[in-house]
């Protein structure tokens, strides 16, 4: 190896020889140390979870470390369904459909869709920031947050106007039993901002509910991805057996190319 490599020194950091987890405890089979005899999650036997829990309960358990209380269970389940289907026009669903109709390996369809859903336009990209903000700002009256010049995280417009369906989802989630402090504070903020043509976004709803449920901000973006996964996947797989012509492919007459000015191009070539 070169003398340059000889000048590089290890920092001597101690890397763990074993992975540590608080989530899963496996017990090995007697005849083969790689096989599992029993599996527990946060202390609960996996087989008991199969018999006695809903899917959403076990997601809650895995990420929060405890099974949900009845009120938490209801809100988490309702939030999961509220966000389950971004709809066929969403860029992430369009990506899913494009992957499906393009005959991409089906195991790639969901990762493709979720990657695009990680963006901030009607997607999951802003949940973490909104959670951090709501946890802090909701200690004070919503009117103080409404007075800020810039829209608070999780608020804004979709296609130029407040998102009507997000507004409907927010109100629907707040119906029925249960008191959700941050979600209600966000509703108050929404009402105060509405005259300024700003409204709650779906990422804001997700952030407020997850904050009420005690999730950490760092879990927020990923949880919204997880909740949207079924709808994204369903649309992609719907197209997996359809011909390429069943997806958009705009004709040349609808395709406009506008190159930057020639001067800009020429100057760049001097680089």
């Amino acid at each position: 190896m070169s003398s340059a490599s000889a000048n590089v020194r290890s920092r001597g950091e101690k890397f763990t020889p074993r992975i540590e987890t608080k989530i899963t405890r496996e017990t090995s089979a007697a005849h083969n140390p790689f096989l599992v005899e029993q599996c527990r999650m946060h202390g609960y036997d996996h087989l008991e979870l199969i018999d006695r829990c809903e899917f959403s309960d076990v997601i809650f358990l895995l990420l929060r470390g405890e099974l949900p209380e009845p009120g938490e269970r209801r809100l988490f389940r309702r939030l999961s369904i509220a966000l389950i289907n971004p709809g066929p026009r969403h860029p992430a669903t369009q990506a899913s459909i494009t992957a499906g109709v393009g005959k991409t390996l089906t195991v790639n369809v969901l990762p493709i869709a979720l990657s695009i859903f990680g963006g901030e336009f009607d997607g999951a990209g802003g949940v973490e920031q909104a959670m951090r903000y709501y946890r802090r700002a909701s200690r004070k009256p919503a009117a103080e947050a409404a007075a800020a010049a810039n829209p608070p995280p999780g608020f804004g417009t979709l296609y130029g106007d407040p998102d009507t369906y997000a507004e409907k989802l927010l109100r629907h989630l707040l119906q029925g039993d249960g008191e959700y402090r941050i979600l209600d504070w966000v509703r108050q903020l929404h009402e105060l901002l509405r005259p300024r043509q700003l409204g709650i976004l779906k990422a804001g709803i997700c952030a407020a509910a997850l904050a009420d449920l005690g999730f950490q901000p760092r879990q927020g973006n990923s949880l919204m991805q997880l909740m949207a996964a079924p709808g994204l996947l369903a649309h992609g797989l719907e197209f997996a057996n359809k011909p390429l012509t069943s997806m958009l492919f705009e004709p040349d007459s609808s395709y406009e190319v506008e190159y930057p000015a020639a001067g800009e191009q020429a100057a760049a070539e001097q680089t």
């Binding site: 989530i23 496996e26 790689f34 946060h42 202390g43 006695r52 829990c53 470390g65």
Partner: peptide, 18 residues
């Protein structure tokens, strides 16, 4: 880099029932 069951160190909740 295969891992045996015992290569994972569990540091979470003790066994419990629903």
């Amino acid at each position: 880099a295969p891992l045996q069951v015992d290569d994972i160190e569990y540091s979470g909740k003790e066994d419990r029932q629903i």
